[in-house]
């Protein structure tokens, strides 16, 4: 039943945007064909997966936070923090050469995760200590992280050989994620898959996962059960921010190859959408991110082939989100009705 409702929600998003297409003299069938072309073409599918990796990592991290009812919107900022940390490591290692090349990436992954975690713990501590609204603190920290990252790349970390253009020196080969042969997909996808399994295990099999859910269901029940709210929330945000930081690293080491101003295309916010659309289920998130990546690629196909505005993809995304959310109501409503 709930599957039928999900399907109906998605369909209604199609119908509403179909109406918009018709109004703007666009053949909706052709438009949808183009929007989903990436799932029929292996080159485009590979691109969809490339987009999906950072979205996946952010969404998986957020899942944990949302399960604890900590409504973080800080993925975007944490992506920037991850980008800052990996760039720092690259620049630092280029000067000091402490790490042998093959060891660099494994150690970098750990460092990026840890330092991004620190950034994520700040709003968690503020929430635990002062009950500040986490939506707003995480949102504000997004702007701060982005500005710091841009400051570094325009100022101290600017490539001295880059004709003054704002970007860091290029990352050396040992600081790049190797591509999976024959595709454009970089190997950070395995971090994403590993993270999905890890989040699943944490939530389903560990005591900590149980505590997360108790905290998420009811603050007072958690207190009654003797669960430390601040411990749970801090740990949850540490993991969440760490994964988002790895998303930033995946963008720089996997795709861009150097630090650039405003380097995240809003994946931190897309991750929020994906996390909710996939009902906070780690495995569905892996598929959902690829679906969304395909949608992003499809949006470009749509522009390229039909001359449609980039705004229409946003409208479709938003409609999809709203109808899916509305579907949640009908799932619950059904339960009440049976009783």
């Amino acid at each position: 039943m709930s599957f039928a409702i999900s399907l109906a929600s998605i369909l209604s998003a199609f119908i509403i945007s179909g109406i918009i297409f018709v109004f703007s003299n666009v053949d909706p069938i052709l438009a949808y064909y183009n929007l989903f072309r990436s799932f029929t073409n292996s080159a485009l599918l590979s691109e969809a997966v490339v987009r999906a990796i950072p979205i996946m990592l952010v969404a998986l991290g957020l899942t944990l936070a949302y399960k604890a009812n900590f409504i973080s919107v800080g993925g975007e900022g944490q992506i920037y923090v991850g980008g800052i940390v990996i760039t720092f490591l690259v620049l630092w290692n280029a000067q000091n050469r402490f790490l042998p090349d093959p060891l660099f990436m494994p150690i970098a992954i750990i460092f990026v995760f840890l330092f991004s975690s620190v950034w994520g713990i700040i709003p968690a501590l503020l929430k635990a200590r002062f009950e500040t609204n986490e939506v707003l603190t995480t949102l504000m920290m997004n702007y701060i992280a982005q500005i710091i990252s841009n400051y570094l790349v325009i100022g101290p970390w600017k490539d001295p050989k880059g004709y003054g253009f704002p970007h860091s020196p290029p990352f050396p080969e040992y600081a790049r994620f190797p591509l999976i042969p024959g595709t454009t997909i970089n190997s950070s996808i395995f971090i994403g898959i590993f993270a999905a399994i890890a989040i699943y295990v944490i939530l389903a099999k560990t005591k900590f996962g149980f505590e997360v859910k108790v905290v998420g269901d009811s603050y007072s029940a958690a207190k009654y059960a003797g669960i430390s709210y601040s411990k749970v929330v801090c740990l949850v945000m540490a993991i969440s921010a760490g994964l988002s930081g790895l998303a930033g690293m995946s963008l720089l080491s996997g795709v861009i190859g150097r630090l650039r101003p405003d380097f995240s295309p809003g994946y931190g916010y897309t991750g929020i959408i994906v996390a909710w659309l996939c009902n906070l289920n780690p495995f569905i998130i892996v598929l959902g991110s690829i679906f969304f990546g395909g949608l992003l690629v499809g949006g470009e196909v749509l522009q390229g082939s039909m001359g449609l505005s980039v705004g229409i993809t946003d409208v479709f995304q938003a409609l999809l989100l709203i109808t899916t959310l509305s579907g949640e109501f009908f799932k619950r409503y059904k339960l009440v009705w049976r009783r």
Binding site: E47, S264, P265, E300
Partner: peptide
């Protein structure tokens, strides 16, 4: 409106 990270795509 292509962000830098998406140019190859």
């Amino acid at each position: 409106s292509v962000e830098e990270a998406k140019v190859q795509g």
